[in-house]
């Protein structure tokens, strides 16, 4: 699992990646120093659950992924049945490339879970 995350982290401007379960517990992580693993996992799980609740309420939809683009960086997360793959990037990162890599990695990760 670490290897899969390492491959994601090889993409330029990626600052870290982690896999969590839907309660926000970290399954695996590879973050640059200075990044708070627990804060990120808790926040992402909260966003995921709130968005999922809101979407489910509005029109029977389920969240596959979310991209959040902020002034100092981006968070992308993809959801699967057993976990959420999260990648944190710098502000100017190539999000298309990151997304492609994440989709491929998610399949491999889900096989491991």
């Amino acid at each position: 699992m670490k290897n899969v995350l390492n491959q994601i982290n090889d993409i330029p401007q990626v600052r870290g990646s982690l896999v969590i379960d839907q309660e926000g517990l970290v399954i695996a992580s590879n973050l640059m120093s200075g990044m708070e693993e627990k804060t990120i996992s808790a926040m992402v799980a909260d966003i995921f659950n709130q968005v999922a609740k809101a979407l489910a309420a509005g029109r029977e939809e389920e969240v596959h992924g979310v991209q959040l683009m902020a002034s100092s960086g981006n968070i992308i997360f993809l959801c699967a049945r057993h976990g959420i793959l999260i990648v944190i990037t710098e502000a100017g990162a190539n999000l298309g490339l990151v997304s492609i890599k994440m989709k491929a990695s998610l399949e491999r990760l889900m096989e491991m879970l």
Partner: peptide
């Protein structure tokens, strides 16, 4: 959440559903 993670102000979000 983005401010707590110290990534600055959220500017844009994309939610991908089925």
């Amino acid at each position: 959440a983005m401010q707590k993670i110290k990534l600055g102000n959220l500017e844009r979000a994309v939610i991908d559903t089925r």
